[in-house]
Design a protein around this nucleic acid. Sequence first.
DNA 1: TAAAAATACTCCATAGGTATTTTAT
DNA 2: ATAAAATACCTATGGAGTATTTTTA
Lengths: 294, 294
Amino acid sequence: MELRTLRYFLAVADELHFGRAAARLHVAQSALSAQVKQLENEVGLVLLDRSTRHVELSEAGRRFREHALRITGAASNAEADMRALAQGLTGRVSVGFVGTATYDVLPQVARRVHDELPDVELVLRGELLSPELYAGIESGTFDLALLRPGAARDGVRLRPLRTERLVAALPSRHRLATGETVALADLASEAFVIHPSGDHSSMHDQVLAACGRAGFRPARLVEVGETATLVVFVAAGLGVALVPEPVRSLAVAGATYVQLADPETVDLALASRTGEPSAAAARVARIIGETVRD
Amino acid sequence: MELRTLRYFLAVADELHFGRAAARLHVAQSALSAQVKQLENEVGLVLLDRSTRHVELSEAGRRFREHALRITGAASNAEADMRALAQGLTGRVSVGFVGTATYDVLPQVARRVHDELPDVELVLRGELLSPELYAGIESGTFDLALLRPGAARDGVRLRPLRTERLVAALPSRHRLATGETVALADLASEAFVIHPSGDHSSMHDQVLAACGRAGFRPARLVEVGETATLVVFVAAGLGVALVPEPVRSLAVAGATYVQLADPETVDLALASRTGEPSAAAARVARIIGETVRD
DNA sequence: TAAAAATACTCCATAGGTATTTTAT
DNA sequence: ATAAAATACCTATGGAGTATTTTTA
């Protein structure tokens, strides 16, 4: 039993006329007759009661028609689904994010994917550290990752997205919180709320490097994993923090973001596995690129 | 896309090894490789990530596998169902009965079909007159009919089942109800409860013919369609009746069946359409034959 | 008698086989 | 070095076409 045979049978069952059915299928009437006959031999039942003047479905034919419709329908579904998958209109894309991208890029991307690619399942994991994301891309856990680019690793392709200025997050009551800008050196004696150092967090290292360039080393460090928690700690007066400018979209009462006088920046990049990504992943990558650009 | 291709793909997806899958399918490895490759071309996606040392399903392959399983599963279902249909183990069989077979043959047949052919749907219509049954067989409304054989009609095949003796149904209080037998002539002056004459009921005619042979013509006729109602009327004292002996299984308080001294009989036959009946109808016919024989 | 399905036959596309090459570990 | 998939090439099955016959309403 083959799908072609079933399609032939269904055409005859539809037209109740071998000639017309053959025309519809673009095959000769004789080929159609032969195929239907073979199908009947296979199932061991007469499916069509036919004379030269009349064709009608037998009881068995009516029953078989239901089966044939189910089978060819499932095949059509499969074809349609695979076509959609090939075009990136369906499928699953898992994306990992560093914490500082979680509150800015992530929600916009999720919204656009939901609107433009409703059948694409987006699996999001935010608040991860760049090394974890590198490993996730290599191992296939993630199709895409938004991370702070570090040493190139082969198996991972990096595309620079943008450079983000660092801003200071200060308690609103802080004496420097009302200024237009703040010089990093003026924060030398403050406690710093900072991402954890473990596993080589990129933000941890870059904040300390910036302080170093400003001529000091923070006296006290309060390590906090989640970006949201970090800002809340600042708001609570536990210290100051340096965060990429897009974190501003995370508004927390009691915390104020102030532009740095120093030109400190961190890079944001999109990572993917080398080789052909899935069509859906490519579409999501494109949306991420457009979202960041705007 | 053809079922063969899907089965090949599923074998490889199962074995994750082209050589073993080919062996399982009894085809050469090269043929399998070619078919899988062609399938991938058709769907436009790589379904299997493979090297000479390792074969695994791609994301698209996992997705396609679900489709392929659904499709081939539906095809297997179809084959199994058609096989069962060809063997008469499934399908629908409609059977019509004359009223006097309704209470005897019908329940036994229904029970046996239910037990022995659980997937055969038995559609029963009882309490019909033989001419209606003839027409129903010819028109295809019924696959089988239990009826009183009359003039042969072509398009209808008749198989004699048995000859049933007529017995008298008398009100229990009737003076003749206690005898071992009753002579028909002794009922000459009674009112007769009888099946309707309309549409040439066979029982109607045969009861009157029997009376004629006994030398009388019933003084009064009470016409009743249903056999059960007929016996109830007798029990109520509205008259006497002649019924085929199997109607005895219809026990009604107040009515007594008494053997006739006269050797009057009616025939019961199984009617079916000429030509090949469905396998299920043939099985049911066989069960009817066996049931009546016992 | 005419329309339509079945049959006879021929052809060729393609599934499948054998032998060999390529490739990744 | 070797196991296994891919490739090259050949064969043959069977699907499809043309022409004709058969059938029945």
